[in-house]
Amino acid sequence: MRKRTMGLIAAGALGLAGAGWYASLDAETRGLLAALPTNRDVLMWSVPQRDAAFRAMDRLPVLAEAREIAPSDKPLPLPAGRPLTIPGIEAYMASQRAAGLVIVQDGKLRFERYGLGFGPKGRWTSFSVAKSFTSTLVGAAIKDGFIKSLDDKVSQYIPDLKGSAYDDVSVAQLLTMSSGVRWNEDYEDPKSDVASFNNAEPEKGMDATVSYMRKLPRAHPPGAEWHYNTGETNLIGVLVSSAVKKPLSQYLEEKIWKPVGMEAKATWLLGKTGHEIAGCCIQAATRDFARMGLFVLANGNAGGQQIVPPDWFAAAAHKQKDIGTPGRGYGYQWWTYDDGSVAAQGIFGQGIFIDPKRRLVIASNADWTRADEGPEGEAREVFYRKVQALIDAGG
């Protein structure tokens, strides 16, 4: 595990073509460098800037650092299955602005396609897909005895939250985004909490997320209302790393990346005070996102090793909170469907869809035209149902 410094400025970088670090870059990376944004406000980047940056968040100037996550020396095979013919797939991928689409059914690779100049050897950023990885690390920490109970108060593990609106919030309420603490997750409002909290200056000696979140007021009693809150996933990350006394990336490598058999190196971006941004920003190959789905289908068992409690996914990947959408719900940082399927989702089109009934995993990466307000989200839901129907028809 090592940190990789990302403190270069894109605009200035192009003026340093003779510098040793620049001369060492390949042609693709130099091309990306020319298009990269010069600020770290992802939500305000243009489409071309996002196309360039989403595949390079950990290796080009995005004013961040990342820790590396080593792959397994025994990658989980994805043997080729009978190719899945999907009518209209080219038009679908173009409309999604898809970078990667991997479909695995019954453990076999049935479809794999890439776009936007991306490919199987690249790493695309996850955005909130990382939330589902972070919650799974809570399960691992419970199995390892570092977290005693989901009924424990969050402030037992993060003492700086004592006296705040989070003082009376349980680990379970944090996992289900039902803390009752006020939060604005509007991705298109530059003054929203989700746009502001990563840039806020932390109090001296305190984690940046904790410093921001402990100042927020209460809106509802704990457990009463579901409200989507990325800051709370970042708190979960602080909680896990504090409990296990390891960086999240190291724990992810030990408990998931290597045991599950991930094929490629991954990275996890760091916030201002050196903690991984737990609600976001794991960079990984699309096939390895699909392998995470296979891990869920295996009920958290990897190579005969039970990584999370045997009943973990029975709770984590099933509806714990109503979200106001018929047929849908929220588990422990997973989006649930009443048919038993579950999904990890990130803005701009990142996703892992898992259907236990059909032993189906669909991993996708994209750069949608808008974070989550455009037509692509519903079109992807239709696509999921289309693939399910194809499987049912023997396709």
Rank of each mutant, 00 (worst) to 15 (best):
Lys191Val: 03
Asp168Cys: 01
Val169Arg: 03
Leu175Arg: 02
Val138Gly: 13
Phe146Arg: 05
Ser132Phe: 10
Lys131Tyr: 14
Glu188Leu: 14
Asp144Cys: 09
Tyr166Gly: 05
Ala140Cys: 11
Asp186Asn: 15
Pro190Leu: 04
Glu185Thr: 02
Ala165Trp: 07
Ser164Leu: 10
Leu161Tyr: 12
Phe133Thr: 09
Asp189Ser: 13
Lys153Glu: 00
Pro159Ile: 01
Lys131Val: 05
Trp183Val: 08
Ile158Cys: 08
Lys191Ser: 12
Asp160Ile: 05
Ile147Met: 06
Lys162Val: 13
Gly163Tyr: 00
Thr176Asn: 04
Phe127Pro: 05
Ala130His: 03
Gly139Cys: 02
Lys153Phe: 07
Ala130Arg: 09
Ser178Asn: 04
Trp183Lys: 03
Ala165Met: 08
Met177Glu: 06
Met177Asn: 01
Glu185His: 00
Asp167Leu: 01
Ser132Val: 02
Ser126Leu: 14
Lys148Val: 12
Gly180Ser: 06
Gln173Arg: 07
Thr176Gln: 13
Val171Met: 07
Ala172Pro: 12
Ala172Met: 13
Lys162Ala: 12
Asp160Gly: 02
Ser128Cys: 15
Pro190His: 01
Ser170Ile: 02
Ile142Val: 11
Ser128Asp: 10
Ser192Glu: 06
Lys148Gly: 15
Lys143Val: 13
Ser170His: 11
Asp152Arg: 03
Tyr187Phe: 15
Asp167Phe: 03
Ser170Cys: 06
Leu175Val: 05
Phe146Ile: 03
Val194Lys: 01
Val194Thr: 08
Tyr187Cys: 12
Gly139Tyr: 10
Leu175Phe: 02
Leu175Ala: 04
Ser164Arg: 04
Thr134Gln: 04
Ile147Cys: 02
Lys148Gln: 15
Lys148His: 14
Thr176Leu: 00
Lys148Ser: 06
Phe127Ala: 10
Pro159Trp: 00
Ser170Phe: 03
Ser135Cys: 15
Asp151Gln: 14
Pro190Ser: 04
Ser128His: 06
Lys162Pro: 01
Ser135Thr: 12
Ile158Arg: 00
Ser192Val: 02
Ser164Trp: 14
Ala165Ile: 06
Asp167Ile: 07
Phe127Glu: 02
Trp183Ser: 03
Leu174Thr: 14
Val171Tyr: 07
Ser164Tyr: 14
Phe146Pro: 06
Asn184Asp: 14
Thr176Arg: 10
Met177Lys: 00
Ser179Pro: 01
Glu185Ser: 01
Glu185Lys: 00
Ser126Glu: 13
Trp183Gln: 01
Asp152Tyr: 08
Ser132Cys: 15
Val181Ser: 10
Ser179Cys: 11
Gln173Lys: 14
Ala141Ile: 07
Gly139Trp: 03
